[in-house]
Amino acid sequence: MQATATTRAQTRWHPLDLIHCALFATLMMIGANITSFVPFLVVGGVPITLQTFFAILAGLILGSRKGAIACTVYMLIGLAGAPVFARFGGGASSLVSPTFGFIVSFILIAYVAGRIVERRGTLKSFVIAALAATVINYLFGTNWMYAAYSLWFSAPEGFSYWMAWAWMMPPLPKDILLAVLAGIFAFRLQKVLKIIPIKTDEGEMR
């Protein structure tokens, strides 16, 4: 659907942009809890969440600005008490949870992933963007966790920076796999949806 020139000129935000961000935030909620619908994707007793996967998709599909806003909306409705985080978590108390950094990092990774594919939109750059986003997710989330733990719990001596990393490392292989899938999936989806103009080697697609 294309907006008329007048409505575009009147508002900085076209309704469709608004709703894309809003619905993506809701989709992230589905992604975070997809294992609750059917008990699949349970690896080693731990249900897999697709939160990071969806955050990457937000950037790759909606672009840097809208993607980051979609993740901000997701974070805010979660804090406001909607059960949108993993395992239907939510509420303002998530703010003091050490793993809250991963949710904050979604805003950043959606922005970065969007930025990368806005420059060049080949399949390769989609996958690279998704992988870069995963790396940022881990770096930001784990550092935040360490900082938050030190702040709220006055870091007992036995807790070291490397312990935080050891704690966070186990799901890494699955996240790398998901990132590659996110890149390929988003590339195909973007071809159909054409939400952001992407430049491929054959020239601009829109």
Binding site: L18, A22, L23, T26, I69, T72, V73, Y74, L76
Partner: peptide
């Protein structure tokens, strides 16, 4: 942002 939050909650 507030409007997006309301839409998101509703959906």
């Amino acid at each position: 942002l507030a409007l997006m939050m309301s839409i998101s909650l509703r959906f």
